[in-house]
């Protein structure tokens, strides 16, 4: 059975590494999109604190994460003892994408939902370093 696509947004609260206008713009677009989504103040902080919520989030298949570089995001979950499920995982890099690109990557229908036969399973093969597929 297909699981619905889940969206997780990281607000990267403690640093300016994600441009403020991108953070704000993506959050506003998500808020206005009508989609269900989750947001967290800062994945780094949650990882350092081994937040139980990270484990719940990591167990969800078919997740799109709006944060930073995929290697870093996966490392943060692994460091917290909650490695991400790779099935259907997509990481949207807000450090390199603009608001339009990031929002499109987050809200576009999943490949399976659009009847595209091949759904890449490997994280990074869809929206790794900010490159849109």
């Amino acid at each position: 059975m297909d699981h619905p696509r889940r969206i997780l947004y990281c607000h990267c609260a403690f640093a300016q590494v994600i441009p403020k206008d991108v953070k704000q713009g993506v959050l506003e677009r998500l808020a206005d999109s009508g989609a269900d989504f989750e947001c967290v103040p800062d994945l780094c902080e949650m990882s350092a604190r081994r937040e139980p919520l990270l484990q719940q989030l990591s167990e969800q298949p078919n997740t799109r994460i709006a944060a930073c570089y995929p290697r870093a995001v996966q490392g943060l979950f692994t460091a917290a003892g909650s490695p991400l499920k790779e099935s259907g995982l997509e990481i949207v890099n807000l450090r390199v994408l603009n608001v339009d690109e990031a929002t499109e990557a987050l809200l576009q229908p999943a490949a399976a939902e659009t009847a595209t036969p091949e759904v890449p399973e490997t994280p990074g093969s869809e929206t790794t370093n900010g490159e849109l597929s």
Partner: peptide, 23 residues
């Protein structure tokens, strides 16, 4: 619409994770 986005930002800045449930 305006309140939702502004509230989200306020909650995140305050350190709260947020889940939006609708549909």
């Amino acid at each position: 619409a305006g309140l939702r986005a502004s509230l989200l930002a306020g909650l995140l800045d305050g350190g709260y994770p947020v889940q939006v449930l609708r549909g």
